[in-house]
């Protein structure tokens, strides 16, 4: 006769069993015609299935690039190494790119972690807060002596990759028969929510440097300096016009005061 476990002990033992970490939860389970381990296995399968399906949904390009069998094996290992920490599965899978980068079997696919990073940023962009774009026709009073900081749309994300990550992503997620031609150059990608979808666009290194500086709270002068370091011909006005046209500037501040 096994002593009745306290609830925490039972749940810890159950979790160990369904995560394949051993333990002996079977001793608490009524068999009733089945091996207790077989009953626990029903849960183990469902839990693994749900979490792996979640990764499939978040990482369609990675799935297409490595194939179903490889993906499932990788996802199965990922979920044990990086267990879900929320009751909401939208937050599950954020470390998949780093996991893939450390996966010896995937080391030949050097671009794979960045494709995964792009897909995670895509999910972040989809779920980010809403914000109304700044009305470019509204009059603004600016003090020429004070630095200006822009507030960019909460869904805006950036990824700079040594690989043509957006080209690869588009190829992998195209319905069928895509043709991939790579010139080996890296791509800088801007992601943002455009209506109901997430837009992805490749951008030049200088614009990327400028937007990255603005997104991290630097003022316009500093952002311009960062961009000019990447390309002496960088045109700040054109970059800002493009951001405003896409509705990605939602406000600006001067001397710490917020204006929207």
């Amino acid at each position: 006769m096994t002593a009745a476990p306290a609830l925490r002990e039972l749940q810890c033992g159950f979790a160990e069993a369904v995560l394949g970490r051993g333990g002996d939860a079977t001793r608490w389970v009524t068999g009733a015609g089945l091996a207790p381990a077989a009953r626990l296995q029903v849960y183990a399968n469902t839990i693994a299935g749900t979490q792996i399906d979640t990764l499939r949904g978040t990482y369609p390009a990675v799935l297409a690039l490595v194939g179903a069998e490889f993906f499932e094996a990788a996802a199965a290992r990922y979920r044990l190494l990086h267990p879900s920490t929320r009751g909401n599965l939208q937050g599950f899978g954020g470390a998949f790119a780093d996991f893939l980068a450390a996966l010896p079997e995937a080391s030949a696919l050097t671009y794979l972690p960045d494709v995964a990073r792009l897909e995670w940023l895509r999910q972040e962009a989809a779920l980010a807060a809403d914000a109304a774009p700044l009305d470019p026709t509204a009059p603004a009073v600016l003090d020429d002596d004070e630095p200006v900081r822009l507030m960019l749309h909460p869904s805006l994300r950036l990824l700079a990759s040594a690989h043509p990550v957006l080209t690869i992503w588009r190829y992998a997620t195209a319905p069928a028969g895509g043709h991939l031609q790579l010139d080996g150059r890296g791509e800088q990608v801007v992601l943002w929510r455009d209506g109901g979808d997430v837009a992805l666009a490749a951008t030049d290194a200088a614009s990327h440097a400028c937007i990255a500086a603005l997104a991290s709270g630097h003022d316009l002068d500093a952002a311009q300096a960062d961009a000019l370091a990447a390309d002496a011909d960088f045109d700040l006005a054109a970059c800002l016009r493009s951001l405003i046209a896409q509705g990605l500037v939602v406000g600006f501040t001067q001397t710490g005061e917020r204006t929207t």
């Binding site: 009745a4 306290a6 609830l7 925490r8 039972l10 749940q11 810890c12 159950f14 979790a15 369904v18 995560l19 608490w28 849960y43 469902t46 839990i47 749900t50 979490q51 979640t54 267990p83 879900s84 920490t85 929320r86 009751g87 599965l89 599950f92």
Partner: peptide, 22 residues
């Protein structure tokens, strides 16, 4: 049901023991 223990979420509707503690 329960679905998490020790900060790890199993993201499933798991059975409770029908005890007074639970």
């Amino acid at each position: 049901c329960w679905g998490a223990i020790g900060g790890i979420h199993l993201n499933d509707l798991l059975p409770l023991p029908f005890t007074t503690e639970a």
